[in-house]
Simulated scan of single mutants.
Amino acid sequence: MELLVDLHTHTTASGHAYSTITENALAASRRGIKLLGMTDHGPSMPGAPPLYHFDNLSVLPEELYGVRILPGVEANIINFEGELDMPLTYLRQLKLILVGLHPVCYPGGTCEENTQAYIKAMENPYTDMMVHPGRPDFSMDLERIAYVSAELNIPVEINNSSLSTIREKGKAKENCRSMARYMAKYHGPVILGSDAHFWDRVGEFSEARELILETGISEDQILNTSPERVLDYLSTRRKRRSDLNTASKYQLSIA
């Protein structure tokens, strides 16, 4: 199975990553990646870029070293209502919106509160994909998340960084294994993400690949197998955003 897309990567703009978009694109090209997401953190993450960073992403070339670039964000869930740290104005213009929970951005709660926050973020019409549910920072009902993912057709990530031996996260492997089994059970869409914070991890899916083989996730569930499949999915998401009145409740104003 070829994996030609890496949608979850960070640049120096995130504040705690160490490579530029040029370095990431070159690494992607050498690994055979055809489509690369540039998804630096939303502004509630310490050290993250300000909003005008996202407003200026249009200056980037569409392609570097033969790799198509998708400028986007890894938006942070900030409360139990699943609100994001990106105003609607910016969500409308980004080409890729990943969403996840991070300890420095989200207060944490009970298993039910955390699960509800994650699911409410999934229901946001501007969310494209959910990331690293297997991280052990917050207790969540992973089976319920997998079920809702399949119902909403919102991809959930198997995060290679959570599984990697160079960035061990304690219970993360156990959680990721459980999540993968539930995703295989309910047959929802899946993405594999490197979550690269340095160029040499771009397109690195070895641990995630092993996990999908172990847990029985089928190839037809995985979006990363072709750029066309990812772009078709993203195009469909944007067509569903025509009724902006229904999306207004997801906007969070940031001064």
Results as ranks from 00 to 15, higher is better:
C176F: 06
L70Q: 07
K171G: 11
G108P: 04
V156R: 02
Y106I: 02
V67M: 07
R92N: 10
K169N: 04
G134I: 09
I69W: 03
M129R: 09
E143S: 15
E83V: 04
R68K: 15
T110Q: 06
C111D: 03
Y126N: 03
G109W: 00
I158M: 05
G134T: 10
F138M: 13
Y147Q: 15
R167L: 08
L163G: 02
L70N: 06
H102K: 01
V99D: 01
Y90G: 00
C105N: 07
T165P: 08
G170C: 05
C111P: 05
D85R: 01
L142I: 14
K169I: 02
S161L: 14
V131E: 09
I97P: 00
I145Q: 03
R92L: 13
A172S: 14
M86N: 01
T127L: 12
P125Y: 05
G100T: 00
V99N: 00
E74N: 05
V148E: 15
R92M: 15
N160C: 07
E112Q: 13
N153W: 10
H132C: 06
V99I: 04
L60V: 13
N159C: 14
L70G: 05
I154A: 07
N159H: 11
P103N: 02
G82F: 00
A146F: 08
V73L: 04
L142E: 07
M140R: 15
L94W: 01
G170F: 09
S161R: 13
M86Q: 04
R167Y: 12
E81N: 14
F54W: 09
Y118A: 08
V104P: 03
N76D: 15
Y65R: 09
L57E: 11
L152W: 08
I77E: 00
N175L: 05
L60M: 14
N175I: 00
S149D: 10
P87D: 03
E62K: 11
K169D: 02
E113K: 13
C105M: 04
N76R: 05
L98R: 00
T165Q: 14
E168T: 08
H53S: 05
K171F: 13
A121E: 07
Y126P: 01
S161N: 12
D137G: 04
H132F: 08
Y126H: 13
S139T: 15
I158T: 02
E151T: 12
P71S: 10
E168H: 11
M129T: 11
S162K: 02
E83A: 10
Y90F: 11
V148N: 01
L70H: 07
H132S: 13
I158W: 03
I97E: 01
V99F: 01
D128R: 00
P87Y: 06
